[in-house]
């Protein structure tokens, strides 16, 4: 079997340049005949090669939509984007559908939350794997099958030569998610987007999948965008953490820094409301109110109606502040407030 060169010679491999560079990305969804809602609003962030970045926030924060837009997978005719998505120096937003297709699964891959429904039920695991390989590489069926077996082995699926013949419903949830990961990583992409990959799994299986993802991305130097509402999981997996609220990035910092000393009141509120097994009995702090709906966004700071630190000046629209320490926050009071973190 001749080795396939996974390295694409067309990649610039410029270490100084981020692998992914999202700037002022907005996503609109049609809401009726003439109107539309901006569900993602001017999102800006970079991801370096091999970096692991968490995208956290509650439902309605726009984190999944952001992930899908990076692959051009938003529903056509219903959603559209503005802004630039630079991937390895090229603007994805300006790519044709066929160029995008060569990127998907080859350079950028995505895994989804529901292992039960994310695989085609009437194709075998092997077919779904070889199909990805043969879409991107000239490869014989036999060769692809060999690679599929290796790929399943790499993600810790026992008896891979048997599993390639089986259908998704033969596998448990944990095994399906492993198969999903095998498919996504079959072509050794440069960037993996994982959308809540462990949310539907039991904790002991979640632990296995987290270990697997961490090991593979670090072995292969794959960049990872890990979308999750679970701060515990993100704190384990990700170097950096981007917090989203109501379609905007509100904070972007090294994970440990956010956990110790968040800069945005929403990051702090999220951290505080997670129940901890070590701390008990006292009341859990919660964030009053609810996430505004996309057609009724507050004109100023979107978190202001729920923020306990709101004061004059907060009713103005907030911009992202790039601080001297490299941290990024969307709050004009970031240097006045000392917020509670995971330890305080």
């Amino acid at each position: 079997m001749k080795p396939v060169s996974y390295r694409d010679p067309s990649l610039t491999d410029n270490a100084a340049q981020p692998l992914l560079s999202v700037s002022d990305l907005s996503v609109y969804f049609r809401a009726g005949r003439k109107s539309s809602n901006r569900v993602v609003d001017n999102v800006t962030f970079d991801v370096a090669r091999g970096e692991t970045v968490g995208l956290v926030g509650e439902s309605g924060s726009g984190k999944t939509v952001t992930g899908l837009s990076l692959l051009g997978l938003l529903p056509e005719g219903i959603a559209w984007t503005e802004g630039q998505i630079g991937f390895d120096g090229k603007d994805i937003g300006k790519m044709s559908e066929s160029e995008m297709r060569r990127l998907r699964g080859r350079h950028i891959s995505m895994i989804f939350q529901e292992p039960m429904t994310a695989l085609d039920p009437v194709f075998t695991i092997g077919e779904q794997l070889t199909e990805t390989l043969r879409t991107h590489f000239p490869m014989s069926k036999r060769e692809a099958r060999e690679r599929a077996i290796t790929a399943l082995e790499d993600v810790g699926i026992p008896l891979p030569h048997k599993r390639v013949e089986e259908y998704p419903h033969h596998l448990s949830g944990g095994m399906r998610q492993r198969a999903m990961i095998a498919i996504a990583l079959a072509c050794e992409p440069d960037l993996l987007i994982a959308d809540e990959p462990t949310t539907a799994l039991d904790v002991t299986i979640q632990a296995q999948i987290i270990d697997l993802i961490m090991k593979i991305v670090s072995d292969r130097n794959t960049a990872l965008i890990f979308i999750s509402h679970n701060l515990g999981v993100v704190s384990q997996v990700c170097d950096r953490m981007i917090t989203m609220y109501a379609g905007q990035v509100v904070e972007d910092s090294v994970t440990d820094e956010v956990l110790e000393q968040p800069l945005h009141p929403y990051s702090s509120g999220l951290l505080a409301s997670v129940p901890r097994k070590s701390v008990s009995s006292s009341r859990l702090p919660s964030i009053p109110g609810r996430v505004p709906s996309p057609d009724a966004m507050p004109p100023g700071c979107r978190f202001e109606p729920r923020c306990t630190f709101a004061q004059a000046g907060c009713e103005a629209a907030q911009v992202l502040h790039r601080r001297a320490d490299g941290r990024v926050v969307r709050c004009h009071r970031h240097d006045q407030l000392t917020l509670k973190g995971a330890l305080t």
Partner: peptide
């Protein structure tokens, strides 16, 4: 509109492959 079609698109499959290979069998 099922979730696995999104997976297929994310793998880089063309619209035709999704429709005729996976759609028809499903």
């Amino acid at each position: 509109s099922s979730p696995y079609v999104r997976t297929l698109r994310a793998k880089g499959l063309s619209r035709q492959a999704v429709l005729f290979r996976h759609g028809l069998r499903n």
